[in-house]
Design a protein around this nucleic acid. Sequence first.
DNA 1: GATGTCACG
DNA 2: GACGTACGTGACATCA
Length: 951
Amino acid sequence: MADKNHLYLVDGSAYIFRAYHRLPPLTDPEGTPVGAVYGYTTMLWKLADDLDAAEGPTHLAVILDKSGRSFRNDIYPEYKANRPPAPEDLVPQFPLIRDATRAFSLECIEEEGLEADDLIASYARKAAADGWDVTIVSSDKDLMQLVSEGDDSTGRIDMLDTMKNQRISIPEVEEKFGVGPELVGDVLALMGDTADNIPGIFGVGPKTATKLIQEHGNLTAALDSAPDMKKSKLKERLLEHRADAELSRVLVTLKEDCDLPVALEDFKLDGVPPEPLAAFLQKHGFTSLLRRLDAGSGSPERPTNLNPAKPVTAGVAGDEHGNRQDVPEMPAVDRSAYECVQDRAALDRWIEKCLAARIVAVDTETSGLDAMQAELVGISLATGPNEACYIPLAHHNEGGGGSDMFAEKPKQIDRDEALEALRAMLASDSVIKIGQNIKYDLNVLARYGVEVTPIDDTMIISFALDAGRGEAGIGGGHGMDELSVRHLGHTPLSFKEICGTGKKAIPFGEVALDRATEYAAEDADVTWRLHKHLKPRLAIEGGSKVYERVDRPLIPVVAQMERHGIKVDHAQLAKLSGDFATEIGKLETQIHQDAGEEFTIGSPKQLGTILFEKLGHKGGRKGKSGQYSTDQSVLEKLAGDGAEIATRVLEWRQLSKLKSTYTDALQAAINPETGRVHTSYSLVGAQTGRLSSTDPNLQNIPIRTEIGRQIREAFVAEPGNVLLAADYSQIELRLAAHMADVPSLKEAFKEGEDIHARTAKEMYGEVDRDTRAKAKTINFAILYGISRWGLAGRLGVEPDEAQEVIDTYFARFPGIQNYISETLMAVKERGYSETLFGRKTWFPRINSKNQAERQGSERAAINAPIQGTSADIIKRAMARMMPTLDDAGLGHVKMLLQVHDELVFELPEGDVEAASTVIEKVMAEAAEPAVKLSVPLGIDIGSGNSWGAAH
DNA sequence: GATGTCACG
DNA sequence: GACGTACGTGACATCA
């Protein structure tokens, strides 16, 4: 037994921030992020375990920050004002820190209006005055003011940085600040602190601050000396910012006389009761700690290491194919267990249940599929298997929809009242809301003024784990019904079963409540189960990084872009439609004349018969269907041979395409409420990690031809605003240069050269129109996975010659060949490719015996890391864009569209210059700090009244 | 629902 | 001797 009391004061809040950034984003079996909690738990364990050590604690307490505000904000409103909000997967861990502390049966101290530092200072001084030794477990430099030696009647105070495993006493403080603890506050007041937004003296850093205090003895003396200094920048600054320094001195002073809410004696450590601790470790899947607890039979044995890699989850492992692993023990789906919530009391009970569960699956039912127009009909919630409910909000009796105003409505809570009741829970940091494609629900609820955060998405998790694993022909493979069958072995009720199909289909709001409850609550239940099943796999299979750091943060960002929409000029589109129609009519007449009969030009089959049988043009059959090919390349060939009908069909096709797909469809896509066009982005649409855009697709608006470009002119800004387009220049080639480590290409990009010209020079020795065009083709061939036949077709040469070109390329650009073979080897071995940010794409047919299938997979596998890395980069830029613009006072700038390597914004004309600077910086630096590229990322920016003019 | 074609990066 | 040849998407028209 130590004969002297030794109090440990743990700076819990500061610790978890550091643990969060140091540890991987682990999740517990329920999917709650717990990386920081795990770090914190092991740290407490280690401290509590030192009970009998010479320097170990006899008393211990954890001190936390209660809220953001303290008395310092009253003195200086900007105090800590520039702190970014905590990362969203850290937020739900704050309450868990308290749980962890209680699990160790330790005291947890926090007081409204006081920062942890102040409580620590007060307790430390009191304990030292009583003759106790004190160790502050923190590395916060502000707390270094407290370090002292002690004497006969007072104890000593030192600090312990558990991450560096370093004791901090007076010599360490002097080494860091050049002065003793009593003068640390003076140094801090001069240098300021950007993290806390303490001003200090502008332009004075740690070096100068220390020197001034050393020379003059204290802050006041240093400031007083300024008028006598010889003329210098420093003198000016000291004179000009004296008030800042004095204010800072007050801010950095710790309040050492706080009322102490718990007496020192109550911090006594006398062993950790094992039961609550075991329950806590069990709940969060800290299995290795649990084993140690069992082994030590109540007295925690010192952990052998702090490596958190293993204990993350409770024994869920993926099999080779990621399907049907050990399904966590869950009862079978029982639809009769679901509750239909029809009154406030029941709703309030469910809200309490969600708050207690901290993790809840949410699903909205609506009157349609368009998140920007559909009406909210009901909400379902699930807090566990078979623990689910449906809250109808806008149901009317079957068949009575709209036609009979007096039709009786089923009993349900008023929609506004229910949303008001749910609002706090849906926005609560301590409750994670899980959805299956939650972007849809985010947008529906946002239209009713309800925010949902933080979120998790089983569809996106599935994509992070299993992109590309779907069978051929099955689109995506991340839909709920499919996931449910694959992972839970359960087929949920289908929408068709409930609402019918075709003409007989009824809107969901007319479905009887018992059926609606079964369907809707089951969706939430299944989502909850999928989450429990899939989330732990992320950490095990290495999907956490890309999910947590790239895709999950993107969900609300993309949702907002969809809600913004973009304005299109209806009148201009209508005019174009008219012009196109006239021209199409003329061409049609001429084509029929050329053919000598009327036929359906849009039918490739009829056209083929006309061209190749009736008119006797040459051109082979194609494909297993035995049909004539009439595509662009075939028609161009015929046109080259002088067949006017082919020229006219090509023109007809172009105009028909533009009219039907763009000028007509876009007019119809204008949302009547907002007057804008709202696309829907899919985050799981492309196996490589790219987004895709539907309803309408705004990622394929014409630009390559003059006639098509007119359509871009119809995408416009609101009056007084402009559209700004920022795109990455040649990003995929740049990434190829980096990833394959090709010296001459990297050099060319660093020098800002025209990359195709550079390639032409290397390949052919001279640069002209012709060689540059060829070089461009070759560069793309490389990105897409080359074959001699493919390249031969593009270059118009024989395959043998194409092979020579390829050989020359490999010789001139060493690294490429190696990249290709290494990539293929890795994919054949592991089954997946990986981007620089760790995004996996699976290639189940890479080892196929079918040559076509295999070679197709090989080409895709060569391309996927490049295309995917490019997608990761622009996604990171998107996630950072609005916060960064906001910091620059440009929070009103709207990010509207993403087109793979381009972002489109709408903003007041006067802000173009300022916004361009920020946008370019965010995009150019988007890979960092996770990845340091050896080539710069070039950004082109333009703006104008229309999207066309912005290019 | 499959097929062919063509708009984009 | 072929796979009928570049990677990744989505929308539309036609036709079975």
